[in-house]
Write a protein that binds this DNA or RNA. Structure first.
Lengths: 236, 236
DNA sequence: ACCTGAACACCGTTCAAGT
DNA sequence: ACCTGAACACCGTTCAAGT
């Protein structure tokens, strides 16, 4: 909340906005990885002294929290809001949208899962997911557990995917992503790890989004078979 | 590998071992959280100058890597090795063992998922999991995908659980763990997040291990219903 | 070969100014 | 009220010694 003038005289002028600071943090994150978003780096990026940042945020944790809040707030709720769509389709849309948003800023992912996601955007997302699962016919108790399972799967997948990339910077193109894992598997001695080594050839044509959706569908299958969920969709 | 004497004269003596350094790192991690394992802190802990650590490890990343390797190496393979047990039971045993090991050092969890898990212990674990799923009757291609799904679930669960705890130090006792989430949910305004707020009362008696096993079983259900896995176990 | 002191280039954060 | 320079207590890492 910028609040350009709150009372009396505004002082020698507020030369920045919170959003500019978050923009700078995101830029540093995108180019230098999770550790690049330093207070001093941000300050340099926006052209103020390091301690000027403390006029806008009480400490670095608050900057990170606000950044996470903004990123989660950017999630497009429209793609899974249509209640005429089959519920599994809606969950897949949500999961893909979330993954796309998170993958856009890999450097921010460790910051997200580094602390509790309890901001308004996270709560809203949780609320929408509970609504979706209620639409699916799940009892409230099941919906709560299922929602958490889905959150774990989505964030866990993205976190491991980001972790498997050694360098900072943008995530590799789709075609090379699972390849990181394949290469690691292929490099293992086949005598000691026969199945892992064999998996490398097995996974030759894999695409990371396919693996992501395969796992998501298994999770949805599990939820469907063990709850009162309306099984509106064949599994692929 | 300590290698007390490799050739000629050993120099003015090797006053430490790699293991002592890792012990010190773990101690700091356990008491001060993920950021407490600094090279300088470790050096102080073991009583040497900071740069002495660089005789044993090339840089901090190598220390972290060795620590992760050791923690994953501590996983007891015996608990899921028995091939006479139903395969789902064996997966549950593995998942619980892994969770116990990881939860024992919450400060190390961000370090684990902060980089690729491609050490010998991680590969061995992967190999054992592939064997287990082969025993279950899965085709190799399915086994590879299912193994990755299970890895994502286990590490994602532990990572989010650790993240939900604000303070460093040991993980809260079992009875208070999901409570952290319950409290966050209960604090939300019911008008804006009715389902999330209702979930708080729904989850009143939840135990974190129960939620963990519930999710794991849904994942196993999903794997069973969509592959050639031998369905040897009723779902709970 | 191993350890040390000293230094360099960083951090986050605080404090006493200046406007 | 907002920004600054200076400082404090930290980092990881390197380098030139000493033994």
């Amino acid at each position: 909340m910028p609040e350009t003038s709150k009372r009396g005289r505004p002082g020698p002028r507020r030369v920045l906005t919170e959003d500019q600071i978050l923009d700078a943090a995101l830029t540093l994150l995108d180019t230098g990885g999770a550790n690049a978003a330093s207070i001093r780096g941000i300050a340099a990026q926006v052209g103020v002294a390091p301690n000027a940042v403390y006029t806008y945020f009480p400490d670095k944790a608050a900057v990170v929290k606000a950044l996470v809040e903004r990123l989660l707030g950017d999630v497009d709720h429209g793609v899974f809001a249509d209640r005429d769509q089959p519920w599994r389709q809606r969950v897949e849309s949500l999961a893909l949208e979330l993954r796309t948003r998170l993958s856009a800023h890999p450097g921010a992912v460790p910051l997200m899962i580094g602390g509790p996601m309890d901001g308004p955007s996270a709560l809203t997302l949780n609320e929408r997911l509970l609504e979706l699962l209620a639409d699916a016919g799940l009892h409230p108790a099941d919906a709560v557990r299922a929602a958490y399972l889905l959150i774990v799967y989505v964030f866990g997948s993205v976190a491991l995917e980001v972790a498997d990339q050694h360098q900072p910077g943008p995530l590799l193109p789709e075609s090379e992503r699972v390849d990181t894992r394949v290469r690691a598997y292929a490099a293992t001695p086949a005598e000691q790890y026969p199945r892992t080594a064999a998996a490398a050839t097995e996974m030759a044509g894999y695409i990371s989004t396919e693996q992501y959706l395969w796992g998501l569908r298994r999770v949805l299958d599990g939820i469907t078979t063990s709850t009162a969920a309306y099984a509106d969709n064949a599994s692929a």
